[in-house]
Amino acid sequence: MQQSDSIKFIRKFLIFIIILFVCDRIIGYGLQTLYFSLKKGQYAQTSYAIETASPDLVVFGSSRALHHYASPELAEQLHCSVYNAGRDGQFIPYYCALEDVMLNRRKPKAIILDVNVWELAPNNEKYEKLAMLLPYIPRHPELKKYTNEISKWEYLKLYCKTYPYNSTLLVSVHDYLFANKLPQDENGYFPLERTMSRQDFESYREKKRVYDEKRAKQHIPVDQKAVKYYEYFLNKTASLHIKTYVIISPTLLKEPNTPEKQLLEQIAKKYTNVTFLDFTANSDYNNQYTKFADEFHLNKQGATEFSHQLAAYLSR
C-alpha cells in the first residue's frame, strides 16, 4: 500500500511539476509581452528610462521627483534634453540601479538627485521595492546586484518566469485597456492637475504638528546601508565628473532639521561636483497649499514655478 501510494504520488507530482513548468512559461511570456507593450503609465515610463533614455540632464528620485521637475520647462530654459526618471515610492537603492544602467549607455552633462527628508531613515521597503527591477534582469544582468537585496534567494526565484511580473498584472491591464485615458508623460514628468483644498491643508497641518512632536521624541537610527547607496551614487557621478545637484524639493510645511536630513547635506558637501539645495524652508512653497496637489506633491502650477526657479539657478 505504502509503495503503491508513494509511486502514485511521485508519478502525479512529476506530472504536476511539468504542467506548472509549461504554465509558468506561457503565463510568464504573456505577462512579459503585456508589460513591455505598454505605451503609457509608470511601467512604460520606467521601461523607457531603463532601456532608451539618454538625455543631457536626468532627474532621479521618487514620486516627488516625478511630479516636481517639469522636464519641458527645464529643457526650454536650459537648452538641453531633460528626462525625469522619478518613480513612485522608490528610494536611494533604486536611483543607484537606474544610474548604473543609464550611465552605462551615455554620460549626461548633469544629474539632479531629488531626495526625501526621510531618505536615510530605516525602512525595509526601500529594498523590497527593488522588485520592480525584476522584469529587466534578462536584458540588464547588471541589475542583479540590486535585486539580490530583496532576498538571498532572489536568483533562484528568477528561474520562474511568472515571478518577475508579480503584482504587475492589475496595473498592466489597466494601463493597456485605458491607455487613451492615461496622461502622457512629458519626458518622464507627470504633472498633477488637482489642487489641495484649504480644509485638507488645515487638517494636515494639525496632524503634521502632532506627528513632528511625536517624532522629535523618538530616536531613529540612520540606515547605514542607505547611506552607502547614497555615497555610491555620488561617488559614481564624481568619478565621471558629472555636475550633480542633490535637491530636497519644496514641501508644504517646513520640515524639522532631523539628523537624517543633516546627514544628507553633510555627505553631499564632501563632493566638489555636488551642490546641495534644500527647499524645505522656502517661503514660496511653505503653506502655499494652492501650489500642491496633496500633502507631499506640488501640482502642475507649483511644479512649473519650481522648475522655472530651479532652471534659473542652474543656468547661472
Binding site: Y163, N166, L169
Partner: peptide, 16 residues
C-alpha cells in the same frame, strides 16, 4: 484549482 491557486499566489502574492 490547485494549479490556478499556485499561479494566483505567483501573480498576486506578496513575497517580501
Amino acid at each position: 484549482s490547485v494549479i490556478g491557486l499556485v499561479f494566483i499566489i505567483l501573480v498576486f502574492g506578496v513575497f517580501n
